[in-house]
Computed example of a mutant assay.
Amino acid sequence: MNTIKGTVISINSANGVSEVEVKTPLGSIYAVVLESPGEAEFVKQNKQVKCIFKETEVLLLREKVSQINLFKGTIRSLEKGRVLSMLVVDCKGQEIRVMLTSRQVDTLGLSQGTKVYMLLSPMHVILEAEDE
């Protein structure tokens, strides 16, 4: 699991669902949660939280697209297996672990030092209140 710490800076809620914007060292990370303000400790303005996401929920792109939760980085390491590959991407000093199929690595022409864009779906970012 990847964990990035940040601060909730905005909340957009309707019908028990909230889009939460978290300011992090990467930039703004958006998460969709099934809680409204007051229902969960982490759906609160200025709250310190952790943004958590699985290695398998990160997409890597070679070209920039217009999308939220898109971060530029560089592949620092790549352990290629027969079926799966584990990559570490440096995004503004934060190390993000990414698991792709080895076929994806080959198709994208990825190797150590490759510049990439990392894309996170807001639906796959989990928020957890930071202990104060």
Rank of each mutant, 00 (worst) to 15 (best):
K80P: 05
I52R: 03
V83A: 11
T3N: 10
K80C: 10
Y117W: 03
M1G: 08
L61D: 08
R103P: 11
R76Y: 11
P25Q: 00
S36A: 07
T114N: 03
F42P: 01
M118Y: 06
G93K: 03
S77K: 10
S28F: 08
R103T: 15
S18V: 02
M1C: 07
R103C: 12
N46C: 00
Q94G: 07
V33P: 08
I4E: 05
L59H: 11
V17N: 02
I52Q: 05
M118Q: 07
P122I: 01
K54W: 02
G16A: 03
T107C: 11
V83L: 12
L26N: 04
N15Y: 13
S66L: 14
Y30M: 10
G73V: 08
L100G: 05
Q67K: 13
I75K: 03
T74K: 06
T24W: 01
H124L: 15
Q67I: 11
K23G: 05
S66P: 12
K50R: 11
V8G: 00
G81F: 01
F71T: 04
K115C: 14
G73C: 02
Q67W: 12
V43N: 00
V33H: 02
R82F: 12
K44H: 03
S66R: 13
F71G: 05
L110C: 08
A40N: 09
K47G: 08
R97Q: 15
G38M: 02
T74L: 04
Y117K: 01
V33L: 04
G38W: 00
S10M: 10
E57Q: 09
I126S: 14
L110G: 05
E128T: 14
V98S: 07
Q67S: 15
V65A: 04
K64Q: 12
L120R: 06
E128S: 15
V32P: 12
T74N: 08
I29R: 01
S102Y: 01
S28N: 14
N12P: 09
S18Q: 03
S85L: 04
H124A: 15
A129P: 09
L34S: 14
S36G: 06
L87F: 01
L60N: 10
S121T: 04
N2D: 03
P37G: 07
L119M: 08
N46R: 01
I126M: 11
L70H: 05
G6Q: 02
G16D: 03
T74A: 04
D90K: 05
F53H: 05
S10N: 13
D90F: 04
L84R: 13
E55V: 01
E128K: 15
T56P: 10
E95T: 06
V116A: 00
V83N: 10
E79V: 13
Q94R: 06
E35A: 15
E35S: 15
L70S: 05
V20M: 00
Y117R: 02
L60S: 06
S66G: 14
K92W: 10
V8F: 00
V65W: 01
R76P: 08
K72Y: 08
V8D: 00
E79N: 14
